[in-house]
Design a protein around this nucleic acid. Structure first.
Length: 196
DNA sequence: GCGGGGATTAACT
DNA sequence: GTTAATCCCCGCG
């Protein structure tokens, strides 16, 4: 078996069209896809959808602010921000221009260019660290040469689990919506507050 | 300007 | 289970 490289994944890059759909649809479709940054690549195993200004868990709830205005543009672009003054979070903007939706990438399994340990990118903060993603990668097209997503593994619908999003208890009834998606039983899915 | 708090993590008790 | 780390965004005045 030949080791997959970041260069080999380039041929399977996702098009801009992929992202211009409903964030919950994109969140599920991203499971099993590869997130590639330079020579590093990991398979996405956990995502969350954020629906728009009406979603009280989303940064879009404040409108098109300096930080989050990229969410209001067309999909296929990165949104990276600093959380708790400590961790950077990597998001994929989705939908059409004017629809402020996005998908948070919460966990991934190593493919190449990073330590082959199931926990190295388990959790959104650890994922950005493992893939060397930071706010320098904010607002970049996701079909670039160094930063892109690609088809990698096909995940059967029966292997996809859903549940409430993590860390958004302040969002009232929006906290209960099942907008978190993960590959059931995968060792790289974040576990701490996985279930409620 | 000021103050509150957060899409987290690791290291404690 | 609890908490520190650490910063900048956002709302308000």
């Amino acid at each position: 078996m030949v080791m997959t490289t970041a260069a080999a994944l380039r041929a399977r890059k996702l098009s801009q069209r992929f992202y211009r759909r409903d964030p919950a649809v994109v969140a599920q479709a991203l499971l099993g896809c590869a997130l590639v940054h330079g020579e590093r690549a990991a398979m996405i195993v956990e995502t969350e959808a954020y629906l728009g200004p009406q979603d009280l868990a989303s940064h879009a709830r404040f409108g098109p602010t300096n930080r989050a205005s990229v969410m209001f543009g067309p999909g296929g672009v990165s949104y990276v921000y600093l959380c708790y003054g400590v961790h950077e979070m990597f998001n994929v903007v989705t939908g059409l221009d004017g629809e402020a939706s996005a998908v948070l990438i919460r966990a991934a399994a190593p493919i190449c260019g990073l330590p082959d340990e199931p926990n190295v990118a388990r959790g959104p903060g650890k994922l950005t660290r493992a893939l060397a993603l930071s706010r320098e990668q904010d607002r970049l097209r996701l079909d670039g040469d160094r930063l892109f997503l690609a088809r990698y593994r096909r995940i059967a619908a029966t292997r996809v689990a859903t549940g409430p999003r993590v860390g958004v208890d302040y969002a009232g009834s929006w906290a209960e919506r099942e907008l978190r998606f993960w590959i059931d039983g995968h060792a790289s899915v974040s576990g701490a507050r996985a279930r409620r």
